[in-house]
Design a protein around this nucleic acid. Structure first.
Lengths: 365, 365
DNA sequence: CTGAAAGCGCTTACAG
DNA sequence: CTGAAAGCGCTTACAG
């Protein structure tokens, strides 16, 4: 549960070795201009000679500041969140912060535990993608702790800084892409009622269908685990439907990969037997067989904005406080082979031939 | 670069509120049996009433112990390392540690920076997958800092705890699987001379070929970036070779995914036009089209063992010190469709038909 | 331009 | 069984 720690030289040792006081050493380490250049140099030489290592813990305790930031992620089995994490860690590291990482795997208990732990570790701020089912009261609680909080991907109201995606718009865009190609029976895979993001995505799909006066059958709202296996099961269910949908909009790329895979197992090809669209544009979406059409909001960009939002909060004083940030990126649709050239009606029209090399095309606002 | 911190109640406040000394409060928080049950309860009630939060930084400073562990990962774009990270973080969290995460993206500069930062944060121990080209002297340096170190996946000599894979054995196993199916012209994709792991993997492949008296042409050792794009380029090169190899062993699943993808682009199918084997058994390998045959050493198990190795070190006293751990997991081969049923000779024999559903089979020692 | 002193929130011998 | 005191390695007014 714990381990004893070596103790190296302290500022006291440097002070003795350089013939100055530890106040002076401390100021030199902070690169204060108040110390004469020669003195500063003398101190630095002594520090180097002794192999001095700055103790951030002690500094944090005394100075009542912290240079660690907590990052709480709900699902690292989804590469999208990994891409987000990587971007965030990079930006924070560049700004001189270290990242405390915790994975909740969608467990509320784990989330509670890691938040307590991060609070005990005295994090300067938190970036969190909350686990499904997180009580609405949590953001307020964290803010009451005095810890700046930025939510990513999963909004929880207007009172907390949030960086996410315009899911409603995105799923309309994806659905209209399919409608434009003549599809009328379009299913939505990954229906999880009760969660904000799922509601937004379904609403975007439903709105696009309504806009084009296309009916939505109840079975087309296919409940599915948000994993490749969920996608596989959903595809099997869809395949039995009569009449069968000719296109599907998937909750995310993880689900879409499962759909592509199950089609392949049946000897069918996405884009030919069925048009498939995902969401997230994970790096792997470019290399699926066939390549996956998907919504892209840019994990890297979202992670960067989330980090910068938090960093800005950390630099705020009570006088210059900015209003709450609610940033929702407008996704593009990256069109690849999985959605192009599928038979659309019972009397299929000629279209792009399946297997034909289709370069990625970006559609959006 | 920093941020001021709220200060909540301290043990002093609890002491005042409960009418005891702060020594007593501290002992209660540590669940010391030395304090009478009633007193302890009184203290706990007061702590709860005040909304007390334990300050681990202060405790670490005074008690000269730390409950954070640094995790330095070379490549989070490779899902294998993410699976490893997830397992490690889970085990460490269960043991009461929090994980400081840093991603080096194979940059030695970044690695140097994050190691310094982690040392300043006073981590109790480090788990590291070193960036390519890390100088041999680094593990010794870190050990000289007094910080226990466990290397994962990339060994750097016998003097540092290491958890990895028997790559040589694994790549022999993979190669022999292809040979058993009649392949004689087998390429190795991902040749990166000068790195231990790459050398081991190539050596395993070469040894299996030699064992079966099969010649290895120089072009079959295909240099490639260790990414899907690297795999794609390699496949294009292989396709031009005369005579063309009928099977490839890939450095890892990332590379193999690129090979599968480029084959698909050409309208060919892995397992039929070319037998393909990967390494790592990332979760996605099950859902590629076709599913990927690959070496599995179990990221979850490796991460668990690495964490436990470090935790054991942290509990050691100078008297009960255990010898250096050098754990190399023996991988299994998980056989899926990508390696089965490909034409093997110019005069191909009948075999498993491509497209036939092949369940996973595990082969190994 | 530099130093002496107080103190951040804890833990740990030590005394009683 | 509990408390008073010292101190972990820093920072920050304050004095000179």
């Amino acid at each position: 549960m714990h381990s004893n720690i070596k103790s190296g030289p302290t500022i006291q040792d440097i002070a003795a070795s350089a013939g100055v006081s530890k106040s002076t050493v401390s100021l030199v380490l902070q690169e204060s201009p108040r110390i004469k250049a020669e003195t500063a140099e003398k101190v630095r030489v002594a520090a180097r000679a002794l192999g001095y290592v700055y103790n951030r813990g002690a500094a944090a305790l005394r100075g009542r500041r912290s240079t660690t930031i907590g990052m709480v992620i709900n699902d690292l089995t989804n590469p999208f969140f990994v891409e987000l994490l990587v971007a965030i860690e990079r930006v924070l590291a560049q700004a001189g912060y270290t990242t405390l990482m915790a994975h909740t795997a969608e467990s509320l208990e784990t989330q509670t535990r890691v938040l307590r732990s991060m609070r005990e570790q005295n994090v300067a701020g938190l970036i969190m993608s909350p686990a499904l089912g997180t009580p609405d009261s949590l953001p307020g609680e964290i803010q009451a702790w005095g810890i700046p909080l930025v939510l990513v991907m999963r909004p929880m109201g207007p009172d907390v800084d949030t960086v996410g995606v315009d899911n409603n718009y995105g799923f309309s865009l994806a659905t209209e892409h399919l409608i434009e190609q003549g599809h009328t029976r379009i299913a939505f895979v990954g229906n999880r009622t009760g969660y904000t993001v799922a509601n937004e995505r379904r609403a975007g799909y439903v709105a696009a269908m309504a806009k084009h006066a296309l009916p939505v059958s109840d079975d087309w709202l296919v409940d599915a685990e948000l994993t490749p296996n969920g996608g596989r099961n959903a595809l099997r269910a869809i395949w039995e439907m009569k009449p069968r949908p000719t296109a599907v909009v998937c909750y995310n790329d993880q689900v879409a990969v499962g759909v592509l895979h199950e089609l392949d197992r049946m000897g069918k090809r996405a884009g030919k037997a069925l048009a498939v669209v995902g969401c997230d544009n994970v790096v792997a979406a470019e290399h699926t067989n066939p390549p996956l059409t998907t919504l892209s909001a840019g994990a890297d960009r979202l992670g960067t904005i989330a980090s910068e939002t938090l960093l800005a909060r950390l630099d705020e004083t009570p006088e210059n406080e900015e209003p709450t940030v609610q940033y929702f990126a407008v996704p593009d649709l990256v069109v690849r082979e999985s959605s192009v050239g599928a038979a659309r009606h019972d009397h299929a029209k000629a279209g792009i031939k399946a297997g034909e090399k289709t370069e990625s095309i970006v559609k959006g606002r």
